[in-house]
């Protein structure tokens, strides 16, 4: 019986997240559209509200092209690896008190592990397509994920030191219900490092080099079409949501807000996540793209030293204030 309930919970979460992913694309297109003096989708439904559904149906029915020289098994598996890893990390996210599928004590580590696993999908996709553009995209992605994973992990060490736990629910609880308790204030350097690594980790502008359209055509997913391409797309958006959730949980106090919304406890969590998503999109509309070597030097020469310094600083403060 317990398993059945869990399965139902998983299904509900899956459905809700998929709906969110669909509407996150709509959200992005609308916002970017208005920032760029145009309307965004307007044709399907009222103000284009049904556009994501139309897109989904379209990509389902498109021909699934596998390049002749590709490594078929790896090629087919790659997007699934990506999506599965991203979906799995959703299991440990606490959307509100008690609203979590698996309240495990190493939640933060688990999410890191899963996001590294997702980058395997990208690398394999790049490699298995047997095209030079996808291969370069895969290589770039590999280098980028490795570098920025380090910076991101180090930036969150400060949070772990303050809260004394890796359990995401407890990290939220450690920040307390008040505005001033949010870790974004004591951990402002870590938040800065985390935020930039987050952009790089999810392959978003200005770090979208693995899929830099004007250089590598479409990067690792150049050879993909139809549903498999859409799966990469979904994985990217779930990645954005997971990263936004981590930011919300570790720095912005999770589901706590100025007042409680009894009918829908995760209200503030969702608001904060969408705030992050908005910033993602805002940045995409504003900034140009870094060059590959510049990206690397920012990661290794700026972010990692900053994050390390932050750990030392946090350690000192914790030692002296008790």
């Amino acid at each position: 019986m317990h398993v059945l309930i869990l399965l139902i919970e998983i299904l509900i979460l899956f459905a809700i997240i998929m709906l969110h992913v669909a509407y996150a694309t709509y959200f992005e297109r609308k916002i970017i559209g208005h920032m760029q003096v145009r309307m965004g989708p307007m044709r399907v439904g009222w103000h284009g509200l049904l556009q994501p559904i139309a897109d989904g149906i379209k990509s389902f029915f498109k021909e699934d092209i596998v390049p002749e020289q590709a490594d078929v098994v790896t090629f087919r598996a790659a997007p699934i690896i990506c999506l599965t890893a991203m979906l799995t990390s959703l299991a440990v996210l606490p959307f509100a008190k008690g609203w979590v599928l698996a309240d495990i004590n190493i939640g933060l580590l688990f999410i890191f592990a899963m996001s590294s696993l997702a980058s395997y999908g990208v690398i394999l996709a790049g490699w298995a397509s047997n095209s030079k553009y996808t291969f370069l995209g895969g290589l770039r992605s590999m280098a980028q994920v490795i570098s920025y994973e380090v910076a991101m992990g180090l930036s969150l060490v400060g949070v772990m030191m303050l809260s004394g736990t890796l359990n995401l629910t407890k990290i939220v609880e450690a920040q307390g219900g008040s505005f001033a308790g949010m870790y974004v204030f004591p951990q402002i350097i870590a938040f800065f490092v985390f935020f930039i690594s987050m952009l790089a980790e999810t392959n978003r502008v200005p770090f979208d080099l693995p899929e830099a359209e004007t250089e590598l055509v479409s990067g690792y997913c150049t050879e993909y079409s139809g549903m498999r391409y859409a799966i990469f797309f979904m994985a990217e958006y779930i990645g954005m949501m997971v990263m936004s959730s981590i930011g919300t949980i570790c720095f912005l106090g999770g589901w706590n807000g100025p007042f409680e919304v009894a009918v829908f406890p995760p209200f503030w969590f969702v608001v904060k996540v969408y705030l992050f998503m908005f910033v993602f999109i805002w940045i995409r509309a504003t900034l140009p793209r870094y060059r590959y070597d510049q990206l690397m030097s920012i990661g290794w020469k700026v972010l990692i030293p900053l994050a390390l310094g932050n750990i030392v600083l946090t350690g000192f403060i914790k030692a002296f204030t008790g």
Binding site: V37, D208, T214, A285
Partner: peptide, 15 residues
């Protein structure tokens, strides 16, 4: 600008 990744300039110019 689009080649370098700045997307919004593109649409401003086209206006």
């Amino acid at each position: 600008a689009l080649d370098i990744g700045a997307m919004t300039v593109f649409l401003y110019c086209f206006r």
